[in-house]
Nucleic acid binder design. Structure first.
Lengths: 343, 343
DNA sequence: GTTGGCACTCAAATATCACGAGTGCTATTT
DNA sequence: AAATAGCACTCGTGATATTTGAGTGCCAAC
């Protein structure tokens, strides 16, 4: 698919893409000739543009308008044209300080990161927390809330906390809760939450559990506790998307917002990014988000000390400022990885 | 300010307000005469409308258009005209079932409630969690995460959980953590989190604390743990606001979204609602939200077993369906109160 | 191969016009 | 005196031309 292009064609394509990114309006031959200070006349540029159109890199909304890049052009642009900007000192400062200032544990850091991404990119920031279930178990605690209610608190070795309210049929004495806790803490030592869950299910079937009342009860309750919800997702800066001119169309916007209210969609979308290293870029239909919407996605994964991976990135229109957003995402992912590995 | 109006004027005003709520378009005299099946001619209605305009209850966007209600008219409408609809069986079912299904403790319930409010009203649902700090202390737990990192978990008697990562200068032995926990748990028994905080600060100054190393350290750490963040706020259904015709204007929308990203604004806005009982209604500029935006707010507070209060409600355009939203908010607040009091 | 020139296209901007919903006023009816 | 009918007037809306100009494609000339 990577077409051979002459140096000049590439230059012109680059100019068109960048112009369009800047203005969101179809760019014409003369604009390219002028702005880019090539020693070329508009007529020549026209010829080249006609070529590029034939190759499926440009389209014109109608005959007498300028041309706009196709998805293919963006792809080509990010693959081989874009000159990545450096992350400025100020941007670095913001990324780092925002990470640090948030004292509220993992969730806090990630939420803040999401906001930072949004601020720096002027698009939507998005962070998917590392899957809690593949994190290493650290501690479980039961706290009696009401007669038939127990709060189970589950802590991972990274300091992520999940809590769950559990209803019990019978009342459970405080001493028993403590014993249950001790028993389970020992049992799950060193396992990931996922493994712990399997272990519990296995134990429940064991012979011993059939006779030991306390044990069977403990297992039943902890099984609920360990069945944690979906991963956390942080999306910030939804308002910013309104800055983009092509989103003035309210109907389209609504589509996107609604997509984001069902976080499931995002998760599915992002799960693929988890496997690959480095910055991933999905353009338009590659995102498999609502086909029509012209959305692009730039992501990178980050890792934690316990080798679980999360995902962060930016969502914006296809014509987003790749040259600055890509480095920002990259840098942020590195910083978050480093910060979380310190622990 | 409550103007005396003849029965007929009131009828007509009501008709206009309701028509406008339904259609979002200026309503003319003949429309009122026809639709409302009053035995009146349009001319008569016109006279009355001219009156109402003089009294500041109506305005016309331009001479040859119909009239639209002013804020004052909405105020009058909700104060003395509106016929509240009953909450339908189906709506009740939804409210209750959504509350119950969410197993994830207090946060889960409130988040789900916020979503339900949005769904039923077709506007934006909003819930402010009861202030954690005035909740009764139940349990504190310290968990060692890294060499110099301790995770403090604080549980209230209602099952709300707050956790906080604390950095320590020196390493603390596991046994000491347990002793610290026991000591603090005993000390704070029966106090609210707020009181507990004060108690800790007082103890830190006491003579005993100066000598007992463990104790002073425990106090220092727990002081951080007890200093919890802002209250939680849940806002759902932001996409729905796009359904409203008057929000087709993207600029105005943006204002609102941005207001909601800084949750502080909402908190401030809602803190007044905390004191009063029953459903509170704020119309347009009464909300002291971005002055121009034409936003209304319907809220009610809910209480918990430990007598802390939270706030829930709906945000929409001034011309929102008061007759159905008010009862929904009212009912939801009652249900949430009941649910939280059971615990 | 590059360029200037020219005819052509078509969306968007502007102008024109008729329509009709709605008003305010006044004369008339009840 | 209150309600109504009648009428002239206003003004936004939508339909229909008309103009404008940015942009193209192509060809002949350099």
């Amino acid at each position: 698919m990577d077409v051979e292009l002459s140096a000049r064609s590439r230059q012109i394509l680059e100019a068109i893409v960048e112009d369009y990114i800047a203005t969101a309006e179809p760019v014409g031959s003369s604009a390219v000739a002028r702005r880019h200070a090539l020693t070329l006349s508009s007529a020549t540029v026209r010829n080249v543009m006609a070529n590029l159109e034939e190759m499926g890199l440009l389209t014109s909304p109608h005959t007498s308008a300028g041309r706009i890049p196709t998805e293919k052009a963006y792809r080509f642009y990010v693959d081989s044209l874009v000159a990545l900007r450096r992350v400025s000192r100020e941007e670095k400062r913001q990324i780092i300080s925002h990470c640090r200032q948030s004292g509220a544990g993992l969730s806090g850091i990630l939420k803040e990161t999401s906001r930072t991404l949004s601020q720096l990119s002027n698009y939507m920031g998005i962070v998917v927390a590392p899957s809690f279930t593949s994190d290493v178990f650290r501690h479980i605690e039961f706290i009696r809330i009401g007669q038939h209610k127990i709060l189970a608190i589950l802590v991972s070795s990274k300091g992520a906390v999940q809590n769950r309210l559990i209803e019990t049929d019978e009342e459970i004495a405080p001493e028993e809760l403590i014993r249950m806790g001790n028993y389970l803490n020992e049992m799950m030592q060193g396992l990931t939450i996922n493994q712990a869950r399997e272990r519990i299910l296995a134990e429940m079937k064991s012979e011993k559990a059939q006779y030991d009342r306390m044990m069977s009860r403990a297992l039943r309750i902890s099984e609920q506790a360990v069945t944690v919800e979906n991963d956390e997702i942080f999306v910030e800066g939804q308002a910013r998307i309104l800055d983009q001119p092509e989103f003035s169309d309210a109907a389209r916007m609504k589509e996107i917002y609604e997509a984001f209210e069902q976080k499931g969609i995002i998760l599915q979308l992002l799960s693929r990014c988890m496997t690959a290293d480095g910055v991933q870029i999905y353009i338009g239909s590659e995102t498999s988000l609502s086909r029509s919407a012209g959305i692009s996605l730039i992501t990178s994964r980050f890792v934690t000390s316990s080798n679980t991976v999360g995902m962060l990135g930016v969502i914006g229109p296809t014509r987003m400022g790749y040259s600055s957003v890509i480095p920002i995402v990259d840098y942020t992912a590195r910083m978050v990885s480093r910060l979380l590995s310190e622990a």
